[in-house]
Write a protein that binds this DNA or RNA. Structure first.
Lengths: 237, 237
DNA sequence: ACCTGAACACCGTTCAAGT
DNA sequence: ACCTGAACACCGTTCAAGT
């Protein structure tokens, strides 16, 4: 009897359950098809029932975004470089799982607890483990996150693993193959070369990431030698 | 009389006029408030009249995006580095003017002529002026565009010129200032330091850009010495 | 007091009725 | 043949009517 009752009204609605369902819908059916009505149906309730646990759709999105942040590994100890590298890889993986979050993670007017914890831990890593001055830590942070989110953005909309140009050309072919090659010779080369090399854009990520980490490493060295030269005045900045 | 007639039916509708009006609406009133109905009203026509010049809303967006591409300076000759730098700055400026374009420029399934010309010229610059091998040119391209678009993405949604954390903290203050500083000490430091330094996020762009250009410069050097060592075999790759 | 169906002001797009 | 108003299937959210 208790079982029967449970099957009729399975699980009580809660903010957490709503948020997780919303993430699942956005992942599975795409962000555009996530609507309050749609979500309510998924949960077996009326659309208006959601508004008891969620202020409005913006609030719903804020909650969803913090779930994504909670899936990103906080930079561990054991050297700033592997820690920052791991964080970058983890962020990219999370954004691959939840591509709809890419435009939204930077905005969120009232960042959730996971968001704050993630940012705090990353700053701690750059300041303490990497030993960067405050302005340098901000430079490094901005640079890395721009790259990570920008890469995720490019990756999101690439039709397959072959860049958009390849697709473009495939359509242009119907018009005039030779004319395309004449007008855009370097794009034509791109298509041929990428196909020849069995290119996968996804592999590009680590290449750029390591180049950036090298650059930050250079900053560190430059800064620590300056610090030695100018004495403890450097600690101020 | 002719004047009177012209004032009643001012300018005939055209694809170009529709696209420019759409860009203006998105710039001025925000992307979310750009609707076919809204746009038609702006142009003084019925919503359905637009469909004579535009397949659907997706087609409209494709056209708008190519207008943005047309505003980006094609990399000029005179050294790969200033050329690529100029292109980056120009792209960032265009994305600042049209923030709604950020998520969309990478996607566009059928890239427009300005898009193709821009990509072709950039590849030409990397291959010919910078003298990079094909795979290295792709690395450099992916890296730069990830950074540029990622930065634009961060910049778009930052409430003011002060990072989101500052705003977050401002709200957290109402709760408990000391508790926030205890839980997120590095974020608390961030807020204090940024305010002290009169920090403007916009200035961050060139710092990261130059670090990346330095990295690409390194790649070039490494590649040209390898080329010397291994002879013309390097030309193959 | 709590919950929620109907209603409102919007969408993009189809389609048939008007010229 | 061309153009376009009404209509359709959707939105997020308000609000008053139901319990």
């Amino acid at each position: 009897m208790t079982t029967e009752k449970r099957s009729t009204r399975p699980i009580p609605l809660s903010r957490d359950r709503i948020l997780r369902a919303a993430v699942a819908v956005a992942d599975k059916r795409g962000f555009d098809s996530l609507s309050m009505r749609n979500l309510a149906q998924e949960l077996g309730t009326a659309p208006m029932s959601l508004y008891r646990h969620v202020d409005n759709k913006e609030d719903l999105l804020d909650g969803m975004i913090d779930i994504v942040f909670s899936e990103i590994e906080v930079p561990s100890s054991g050297g700033w470089r592997p820690a920052m590298r791991e964080r970058a890889m983890s962020t990219r993986k999370a954004l691959r799982r939840h591509p709809w979050a890419i435009g939204l993670m930077e905005s969120s007017k009232r960042p959730g607890p996971a968001n704050l914890a993630q940012h705090n831990a990353t700053l701690a890593c750059l300041r303490t483990d990497a030993g960067l001055s405050f302005p340098m830590a901000v430079h490094a942070y901005s640079l890395m996150d721009s790259y990570i989110h920008g890469f995720a953005l490019q990756e999101k909309t690439l039709p397959s693993d072959i860049p958009a140009e390849a697709e473009a050309r495939k359509e242009a072919v119907t018009d005039d193959d030779a004319a395309f090659a004449a007008e855009f010779p370097y794009l034509a080369e791109l298509v041929v070369e990428l196909r020849k090399a069995n290119y996968v854009f996804a592999d590009e990520f680590e290449y750029g990431l390591d180049l950036i980490l090298d650059g930050i490493e250079q900053l560190r060295k430059r800064e620590s030698t300056t610090a030695k030269r100018t004495g403890k005045a450097s600690k101020k900045h």
